[in-house]
């Protein structure tokens, strides 16, 4: 993905810990299978989702589309 300056920008998935309830719907739909339940709990005690391999993210937004808590941001 070009950044318009001759370099490449890797898409990035960012899980907002405040909103994530670890329902795991995103894990199932991720085509690259790079989302997993993390080992850190948020203030409500949910073990929030983490991206296990950021380099593999293609920025398809499917995880964010199914997230019922709007806890996923995608950067590209």
């Amino acid at each position: 993905m070009s950044d318009g300056k001759g370099g490449f920008v890797m898409p990035k998935v960012n899980v907002l810990d405040k909103f994530c309830k670890s329902c795991e719907l995103c894990i199932e739909v991720c085509p690259k299978k790079i989302l997993a339940v993390g080992d850190k709990a948020n203030a409500k005690g949910y073990f929030t989702i983490v991206c296990t391999d950021e380099e593999k993210c293609i920025g398809c937004k499917i995880c964010a589309t199914v997230c019922p808590d709007v806890a996923i941001e995608i950067y590209k």
Binding site: K21, L25, C67, P68, E73
Partner: peptide, 24 residues
Amino acid sequence: KIFGRSKGLTDVPFSFCPGCTHGI
């Protein structure tokens, strides 16, 4: 940012159970 929280939503986390599609 190509996907994020809409301006139409407040900054309050949904009170629904995990996985409830009300949020979608």
